[in-house]
């Protein structure tokens, strides 16, 4: 399969990339190419121009600030994130999810920014950045702006990025002491995409009760699902297996669940319950150390 013809641009700075995107609104941005190139080969995408941002130095790398916050360039690969000690320390949930994307070869080329901007609901990172309360930085003709991860995903393959804007950086606050996390997925056996992926974070009070919790899902709806009611029900509980099971059973609601030839909507909801419970229990056990 051969992609349709396109004009190729390789800017050397974010400013140049933004200018190019403005002058050719039909262009697509290419990072690692592991979402865009397959789409172009299948002729599901036929951009008139491709703007290759893969070599802009500012867009690559992981920086850990003194506050613990991670600043991850949009063109940082899944492999770099999965194997980064800084990420494993500050936000192990992100490293754990990145390590489960695709396969080894895909992780060497695929990037966090490309993954998030592509906004495939069956992908592994959307629910993870929502659970981590990450902030996404975008650069456009009007300058840069910060977008909370929870507001970034609008619909199937649709984000709040405006025409002319490029995702440049992902800012991830560090998880505090006494916090555990877990990403679990039930994957489609051929594609590896998530039929359901559960991202859980649990923080403990000194007495062992639950101080804070997060539970978010990939794959079950057109956009990441934040099961805030489950998390709320867990706060103050003893985080026993029974408390976690009850919180999920009583409070998990998946808005607009998706069904397709691979899994029906009701099956995906059952997966969400099962994986949500397991991920919360694993996060609790890790928080207890």
């Amino acid at each position: 399969m051969i992609p349709p013809k396109f004009d190729y641009h390789r800017p050397t700075s974010v400013q140049e990339a933004v200018q190019l995107l403005q002058s050719s609104p039909e262009a697509k941005v290419l990072a690692g190419g592991h979402s865009l190139i397959p789409l172009m080969k299948l002729r599901l995408a036929a951009p008139a121009a491709v703007i290759d941002i893969g070599r802009i130095p500012d867009l690559r790398g992981i920086q850990a600030l003194d506050s613990g916050e991670l600043r991850i360039g949009a063109c940082t690969t899944h492999h770099e994130i999965a194997t980064s000690q800084a990420v494993q320390r500050a936000a192990p949930l992100l490293a754990e999810a990145a390590a489960q994307i695709g396969d080894r070869q895909v992780r060497y080329r695929g990037t966090i920014g490309g993954n998030l901007a592509h906004a495939d609901p069956a992908s592994d990172l959307p629910a993870v950045v929502v659970a981590l309360n990450a902030t996404l930085q975008a650069e456009g003709p009007q300058g840069s702006r910060s977008i909370p991860a929870a507001e970034f995903f609008v619909d199937l393959m649709t984000t709040t990025l405006q025409p002319g804007e490029i995702l440049t950086q992902i800012r991830v606050p560090a998880l505090g002491q006494g916090t555990g996390s877990c990403y679990l997925k039930f994957e489609h056996p051929a594609s590896g995409y998530a039929l359901c992926g559960a991202a859980a974070i649990v923080s403990l009070n000194p007495d062992g009760s639950c101080a804070q919790a997060r539970l978010c899902f990939n794959g079950v709806s057109a956009r990441p699902v934040d099961a805030a009611a489950v998390a709320q029900a867990l706060v103050g509980s003893d985080l026993s297996d029974g408390a976690i099971d009850a919180a999920v059973e009583d409070h998990l609601r998946v808005p607009d669940p998706v069904g397709d030839i691979h899994a029906s909507a009701s099956y995906r909801q059952e997966l969400a319950k099962a994986l949500g419970k397991r991920a919360l229990k694993a996060a609790r056990d890790r928080a207890r150390g």
Partner: peptide, 9 residues
């Protein structure tokens, strides 16, 4: 690094 050359321009 191992890459899939059908998915690299």
């Amino acid at each position: 690094h191992a890459v899939k050359s059908c998915t690299v321009l």
